[in-house]
Every structure is written in C-alpha cells, then in structure tokens.
Design a protein around this nucleic acid. Structure first.
Lengths: 229, 229
DNA sequence: ATTCTTTGCGTTTTTGATACGCAAAGTTAG
DNA sequence: CTAACTTTGCGTATCAAAAACGCAAAGAAT
C-alpha cells in the first residue's frame, strides 16, 4: 500500500458539522475520539480522503461510518489549510455541513456505545483540533443560508406545523419573529402545501400540518423567484 | 526530495480567479499554459501546495509567480475534488478569487511575453481542466458578495466617481440601476467620503470624486450596520 | 449666446416590513 | 355544563424602504 511521491504532499481529510433540530434547539452531532491525538475528546466526524473517491464522497462515507447518518442534505463549507492544525503533521481538511432530522438518528444525548451524541449548539464540550473554528464557521453559514434558501425543511419532519417551523428559524437565527407576520410571509412564497390534517393529542387548539413543496419551489426559482425570510 | 507515505494521497493545488475592472466591463486574468497537459490553452493561475505553506499562502504565491499580482484582496471560493478533473492524476484544488484594479497590472489585452492577459468575463477562451466551472462559481460568488459587502471598492482606484461605481455594480450584477437611487442609497450608508476634488479634462459637467472610508465602514459594522445594495 | 449631456438634489408612488387587534378552535378547570 | 384559558388563523394599521421620476445647475461643445 505504501506509495512514493516526488514532492511531499499534505494529507487531505474531510470533517462534517451535522446540525439537528429537536423541536426547540439546534444541535450538533459529535463523536468521542478513541485514539490519539485528542483521545476521549469530542470531534467532528471525518477522516482522510481515499485516492479513489471524490472529496464529497469521502465526507458522506466518513459520516456514515462514524455516526450511521446517511442520505442527508450536505454542502461544502470551507477548507482549512493552516500548517499546524493537526499535531500528527500536515493535514488539510475540507469541511462540510449536513442537516438532518435529529430524531431520525439518535435519542437526544446520544448512546454511549456509539460514542456519538447530540450537543446543544450553545453547550458544546471542548473540541479536538480546530473543530471549534469549523463549527463557528458552519453556524454562520447556516444562519446565512436559512434566510435565502429553504434548507430549514431538511431539519423538520415532512409534515410540520407553522409554529414548529418558526421555532426552528428562531433557534437558528437566535431571534424572535412575530407569529402572524412569519406565517403570512412564508405562506405568501407559495412553497408550502397546507394539508387537510391536524396534529393529534395536543393541548388547546390543534394546528394544521403543512409540507414543503419541492417541485413548486424549483419551478418558482426557475422563474426568478427568491426565497427570502 | 522524494517521500514515501503509507497510503496514497491526492495532490493538493490552488487556483485563483482574478477579477479586474477596466471602467466598463468585468475582466478575468488568465495565463496560457506552457506545458502539457493543455499546452497553449488558457488556465487560471495556480499550482501545488508546498508542505511548508498554508493553502492561503500557496494561492498568493502562485498568483504572484505566474502573473506578478500581489497584495490584493483574496478570498477562498470552493474546493474542487472530483477524481478526474486533472489528466495527470488525482489533484484536488482549492479555488480562490481575487479582486484587483486591472489598470495596476496589465494593459487590457495582456502582454504576450508574459503569457498572461485580461479577458472579458463574457468572451472567454476555452479553458484547461475544470476551470470553466471554477470561473462560473467565482462569478456567482462575487455577484452575491458585492451586494452585501463593500468589495467593489477593491476593483476601483482609490478616488472614483459615483458613475464609475455604478458602472462597476452594473457590470458585476448584469443589470441596470437608476442613477439617482443608486447614488442616494450608497451615500446614505455613510461609508463614502465626498472629496473636494473634481475629475479633470472631461466632457460636460465634471463629477466630484469620492473615496471609500474603511475605518468608518469597520466602525459601522461593529455597531451592527449592514452594507447592502 | 445657445445647445446639449451629465450631474446633483429633490419628490411622489409603490412595495414590503413591522406591529398589533380580535375572534374562533378546542382543551382545561371549576 | 359552563367559564376560563391558550393557541391558532386571519385580518388591518402603521411605518420604512425601494422604485420611479422631475427638474435645474454645471460646464463643455457648437
């Protein structure tokens, strides 16, 4: 397996910031490292790029291998290329972020066996390498993206209430919206289908469910429509 | 100089999309390749990352070595990691974009000796590798950035007229603005100093010159101000 | 002196953002 | 069963910004 090159090369890795939403707060998926360096310290899921896979494929593979998360929304974030970001030597890392329905994967708090778990975005443990920096970059990116593109729906169940959607936006953007203005603004875009279905077993008045209409969204964007909250 | 690794590694390179403005159109700086593959085909300036430099440093160094451009505004764009993007083998490239005052460097059209030259963004020659994709990504990025951050000033002389600034915005965003609304909107932000100086030797009424006040911009952004055109 | 183009400063109109009123739905408490 | 209470759903009023446009002064060209 050993290989020889004419000139030294940095190693190339990927790391992934996985965001989840538990209904009230934004969470991040972290794995506890089992080997040195930073043994027993939490880190972003990630690993080295293989020679026969694209960088995107590497990010998906590592995420699946380390956390079981697959088939999720994923986007490249930024490449971190400082010289001393990894004590093992020169490692350049292409960072990604992913959005998942957190209830699909782990119970909140994580199973200790898997060494992976959800952490509230504002209550993070110490992190290995420069992963704190990566995470802050990812948080800024998702705050930007959610205002201009309908990525928020990746974090919710297919059917959701308007209040759930608003709570998500408030958690990501860390600010409050007026309930009535938020609702009419979102509905005005026309990308939501209002379903003939209401939430069951709920205190007080039951809200109706809605779903994101992806076809309608794509159609509208092609016509020069701009999703902006 | 030869080195051995336990596992094969992709080579890591940088490429840079250099934007310039000639007063009426947006231009891109390209270099003609002198070696195979793609000999005599135009490409973005770039090259391989050395083991003792950061990825950012590599982008600046390669840009200077191949075009003489240095000390300019530069930002990371995206990392291109497909398997077959380079016929020499596995090469992952971190792309950057830079903004320069194009008159500072080459006469428009380029000097043939240097094998580097400016091309209008909408009249590009065939490009090597996946550089067309990189360039399109860069164009989208600059169109986004110029609306929210005052990067346009990097493309103009220190002193400029309001019409020059508007022409730049129209060239980048490929749309027209109303002269009076554009002017008042920019002036209202407060980041421009109006100088006691007018353009000389000009037909018809001479416009006043202005300059970007970076200190004022930084002060305003710290106070939670948002530059948006 | 007159014509002509650009500049500079304004107003009007339209659109969108924000604030908030209120009644109906539907559960909980007495 | 009735009253109280919370959430929902739909509406309007107010305010701020965007877009459209009017007009005269500057100043070179004729």
């Amino acid at each position: 397996m050993a290989v020889e090159y004419e000139f030294p090369r940095p190693a190339l890795a990927t790391d992934c910031v996985v965001f989840g939403f538990d209904g009230s707060e934004l969470n991040v998926l972290l794995v506890k490292r089992g080997i040195e360096p930073y043994i027993n310290v939490y880190a972003l899921p990630g690993g080295f790029v293989r020679i026969d896979e694209t960088v995107d494929e590497c990010a998906r593979r590592e995420l699946y291998e380390e956390t079981g998360v697959k088939d999720v929304y994923m986007e490249q974030l930024y490449t971190f290329g400082d010289i001393n970001r990894d004590p093992r030597g020169r490692v350049v890392s292409v960072a990604y972020y992913a959005l998942v329905r957190s209830t699909d994967y782990f119970p909140h708090g994580g199973t200790d066996a898997s060494q992976a778990g959800w952490f509230k975005i504002n209550e993070l443990p110490p992190l290995a390498f420069d992963h704190k920096t990566i995470l802050e970059t990812a948080k800024q990116r998702i705050q930007n993206q959610i205002r201009y593109r309908p990525i928020g729906f990746e974090l919710l169940d297919q059917k959701f209430t308007m209040t759930q959607l608003q709570t998500l936006y408030e958690a990501v953007l860390e600010r409050k919206f007026d309930r009535r203005n938020f609702s009419s603004k979102i509905l005005k875009t026309g990308v939501l289908d209002i379903l003939d279905e209401k939430v069951q077993n709920v205190a007080y008045r039951a809200p109706r469910l809605m779903s994101f209409n992806r076809e309608r969204y794509l159609q509208l964007t092609q016509e020069g429509f701009n999703f902006e909250i």
